[in-house]
Design a protein around this nucleic acid. Structure first.
Length: 375
RNA sequence: GGGGAGAUACCAAAGCGGCCAACUGGGGCAGACUGUAAAUCUGCUGGCAAAUGCCUUCGUAGGUUCGAAUCCUGCUCUCCCCA
């Protein structure tokens, strides 16, 4: 499902292509997050044409609660339900184990959740999250894990990793014993955990690799730890994960985080930052990061981004977007999201090009400096 | 002409003797957000020192009181009802 096409000589960066039943995806790739079966506020047409997305995410926890698997099954799976014919990846709900602390209880069997919608109780297990993801029908599905918080003491991290590994065995077994509900192949990715402890991360990477799945993911990062810790862990883990399989760094991150991770051999990314932060007025541009709500943009009638990653970046001015976002207008959220996503996709696309051209390192260093700028 | 109600910081609106530089909304300013419980959340919003402090504010001019946005008197203005 994955072919590496070129490698950077100075770094661990690589360019490849990811193949699923719903298309070919050049890597490195950024995957917009569409938790509830929608990248909030964005039409699929814009996702494809303006942003250039070939793969987006869905979330098992959210889709299971609403609309529910009965409807998703009746609809013919999520692709059909949401009319998205390109590739889909679903997270298992593992992250909700982390973010819904207080509404959940962990046991050996799985996680007992309280629905954030109506308070009802549900249980997620490694097995039923595979079953649910079979029905949802994403091309790439994730193992159910525990995403440990940061900071987290060694004892807890070790215990947590152990649980995640036992859950992984069960998920792989269920995955191998079942067939896709729909007529195409699905791939299961294990998730490496271990907090910020190198030895735990090593054990976890070995565990993930040993499953022989088509790709691997690194979870439990960008949860509050310093960026340098994250980069170190990526290096440790990528030293062990199979080289010829795709590596997915879950939930990361800022443009700089992504470039640093590409340099260390990551192929896939997802993050809510371009959409959520965009809705809240944060814009990633070729000039630097801007808070469009700030007064200083009130009379700036220049395009959002003169280098225009998307047409909206050129069609609308900073002053206009500021007005829309401050007024709470829906269009503001849409324009900001489209622009930011296009920016992210273009950035990783550019990284790919530089890897192929053999001058990734130099380009990356220049970009990191530029992208750290706060305007 | 007669009767009644009210004037509070950018706006709206509480407060009706000390705990009031003054509740709360809105607006304004800034910040946060990393496998989306998020079109959400947080802080600040009289001036100056910016920590404990000091100074000027509640239509206006006086008064009562140890002490007033809060009580009394005059004045100005606004709104409502009846003629």
């Amino acid at each position: 499902m994955f072919v590496i096409q070129s490698r950077d000589k100075e770094t661990g960066a690589r360019a490849g292509v990811l193949k699923t039943a719903h298309g070919e995806i050049p890597t490195p790739v950024f995957m917009p997050v569409g938790t509830a079966g929608t990248v909030k506020g964005i039409l699929h047409k814009d996702l494809k044409e303006e942003i250039g997305a070939k793969i987006i995410l869905g979330n098992t926890y959210h889709l299971y609660l609403r609309p529910g698997i009965e409807i998703l099954k009746a609809a013919g799976g999520l692709h059909r339900f949401m009319s998205w014919e390109a590739t889909l990846l679903t997270d298992s709900g593992g992250y909700q184990v982390f973010s819904l602390t207080g509404n959940r209880k962990l046991t050996e069997e799985g996680a007992i959740f309280r629905s954030h919608i109506d308070g009802s109780t549900h249980v997620f297990t490694p097995e039923n999250t595979i079953d649910i993801q079979r029905i949802i029908g994403a091309d790439i599905i994730m193992a159910f894990d525990e995403c440990a918080p940061f900071p987290c003491d060694y004892r807890y991290a070790k215990k947590s990793v152990g649980l995640t590994h036992r859950w992984l065995d069960r998920a792989v077994e269920r995955f191998q014993q079942t067939d896709p509900v729909w007529d195409y192949e699905q791939f299961l990715f294990p998730i490496v955990q271990g907090s910020t402890f190198d030895d735990l991360r090593k054990i976890s990477a070995e565990k993930a690799a040993s499953t022989g799945m088509a790709g691997n993911a690194i979870g439990g990062l960008s949860v509050g730890e310093p960026a340098e810790e994250m980069y170190r862990i990526i290096e440790v883990v990528n030293g062990i994960l199979p080289f010829d399989k795709p590596r997915y760094l879950m939930g990361v991150g800022t443009p700089v985080n992504i470039l640093e991770a590409i340099e260390r051999g990551i192929d896939m990314f997802d993050c809510v930052m371009p959409t959520r932060n965009g809705r809240n007025g944060m814009l990633f541009t070729n000039e630097g990061i801007i808070n469009i709500k700030n007064r200083k943009w009130s009379h700036d009638f220049n395009p959002l981004d003169p280098e225009g990653p998307s047409s909206v970046s050129l069609d609308y001015s900073k002053a206009y977007l500021r007005h829309l976002v401050i007024s709470g207008e829906i269009l503001g959220a849409q324009i900001a999201s489209i622009h930011n996503l296009a920016f992210y996709l273009k950035l990783v696309g550019e990284a790919r090009k530089k890897i192929e051209e053999g001058n990734f390192k130099k380009w990356k260093n220049g970009m990191v400096k530029k992208l750290s700028e706060r305007l």
